[in-house]
Design a protein around this nucleic acid. Structure first.
Lengths: 296, 296
DNA sequence: TAAAAATACTCCATAGGTATTTTAT
DNA sequence: ATAAAATACCTATGGAGTATTTTTA
């Protein structure tokens, strides 16, 4: 049995006339008769009752008609869907992101991608930078949004900056130096810092340490917490101060004020993916991200 | 595109090796390569990435694999279902019945048929004898359970008795002649009868009238009701007496007693269908009915 | 007798075979 | 050097065409 048989059968079932069906199929009548006979023989069931004058479909033929139509529809779908998959319009994409990306560009990117590629099954997982790199390596995620540590390049990962933002000092509202509009890091030499554990985000951690070193001190780390959101909470509780991306101002916590840092101090959110990934879904995602990012 | 292409594609996708796939398909490797190339050309999408050393499936190929597998499964189903339909194991059967059939054999027949032919979509409609004949004629039902009027034969309908039962007199509990175990019809000459309207069931009606005539009287019809069930209710309300099939004793209405009629007075429930109906579902139903009936 | 399906036969397109080449490891 | 896919070429099955027969309404 071939799709040809189904196509021919459907034509005859709809016309109930071999001559007309043959014309519709652009073949002549005898081969059509033969193909139907062949089909009936293969299934072992009479699909049409035909006198030389009239053709009628049998009850079993009706059942087969239903099934055959479904199969023909599906085979058209199969081709259509495969073509769409080839264009990256159908498929799966797993995205990893650090929690703070939620406060900057990620929501817009996801919204835009979902809108344009509705048939891509997008899954999002909040992962810290180190875990994202691991997950990219073994394919658990296809793209990540992270703050890359030094020397992550040349390891099969592509990196692309997507959001550059100043760092700010977050401190309790009634802190002594809150009055100033911007703060020199040097003034914080004696403060207690709340940081993200180095292991969770080495790039960001090392950068802060380096900044402090340049100002002539090593920060005293009073406490570590793995999410900026949690850190801001601890600042509100007057456990200490913290250096965080400017976008964290959006997590409006009562009793916390943000101050600019004098001199250039910034953090760059990067998009990362494995160099050799041929997935067109991924490349569509990268394109959408670039577009969204450049439109800001 | 033919089912052959799908079958070959699935084999290659599963083996990821043209040589092995060809062996599994009992063809040689070159035609297999050709068919896959042809398929890719037709869809316009590369389904496998192949070096001369390794074959791997593309993301689009994965989508096509899913679809192709579904189509192959469905086409096997199609054949299986068609064969079953041809045996009358799949399909639709509409059954008409007079309400009183519910008190005798119909429930057992339906139960048995449902059990044996679970994939037949059985629909039941309570219709009086006249409506059943009409419905049989224009195909709204395929079998009927009715009490045939005289001369219904030779009109394209097949009839077969399925349940023969004595007629009984239903009368109010405190009726004067309730003491007797059986009653001569003659004793009812002065009673008020409750009957089913002639138009609804001419066979049964005429038979009762004829019985009374033979005993020398024409019954006085006090009231008509179209269901035996209703009639028994009216007897309970002391509106009159009625002659009903013995199986109606099962409709235990308070205040009604049943008495045998002296002499032979019986009614025969018949199964009816149109002579020329080739439906195997119907013939399976007829067979089941015969079996159930003969086992009583 | 005329419309329509089946049969008889012919032809050629193409599925599938064999032999060989190419290429990546 | 070798395994494996592609290419080249050949064969023959069978799908489709034309002509004709059969059947029944």
């Amino acid at each position: 049995m071939e799709l040809r048989h189904l196509k021919y059968f459907i034509a005859v079932a709809e016309e109930l006339h071999f001559g007309r069906a043959a014309k519709r199929l652009n073949i002549s009548q005898p081969p059509l008769s033969q193909q139907i006979i062949q089909l009936e023989k293969e299934i072992g069931v009479r699909l049409f009752n035909r006198t030389k004058r009239r053709v009628e479909i049998t009850p079993a033929g009706l059942v087969f008609l239903e099934e055959a139509s479904r199969i023909m529809d599906l085979s058209e779908d199969a081709v259509r869907r495969t073509i769409r998959a080839d264009k990256g319009e159908i498929g799966r994409l797993a995205v990893g992101y650090i929690g703070s990306a939620n406060y900057s560009v990620l929501p817009q990117i996801v919204r835009e991608f979902r809108k344009r590629f509705q048939d891509v099954d997008l899954s999002l997982a909040e992962l810290n930078t180190s875990n994202q790199i691991e997950a990219l390596r073994d394919g658990r995620i296809h793209v990540g949004f992270l703050r890359p540590p030094q020397g992550i390049q040349n390891e099969g990962l592509s990196l692309e900056p997507v959001f550059r933002e100043p760092l700010m000092v977050a401190m309790p509202q009634n802190h002594q130096i809150k009055g100033k509009t911007s703060i020199s890091l040097r003034m914080l030499a004696k403060e207690s810092f709340i940081m993200i554990p180095r292991q969770r985000g080495p790039g960001f951690f090392d950068y802060i340490i380096a900044l402090c070193q340049k100002e002539g001190f090593s920060p005293h780390i009073a406490l570590e917490a793995s999410q900026f959101h949690t850190i801001i909470g601890l600042v509100a509780a007057e456990i200490g101060i913290a250096i965080v991306p400017a976008s964290m101002q959006r997590s409006r916590f009562k009793g916390v004020v943000f101050r600019m840092i004098e001199g250039r101090a910034e953090t760059v959110l990067n998009m990362a993916w494995t160099n050799d990934n041929p997935s067109l879904v991924l490349h569509n995602f990268i394109s959408v991200t670039r577009e969204v990012v450049s439109s800001i």
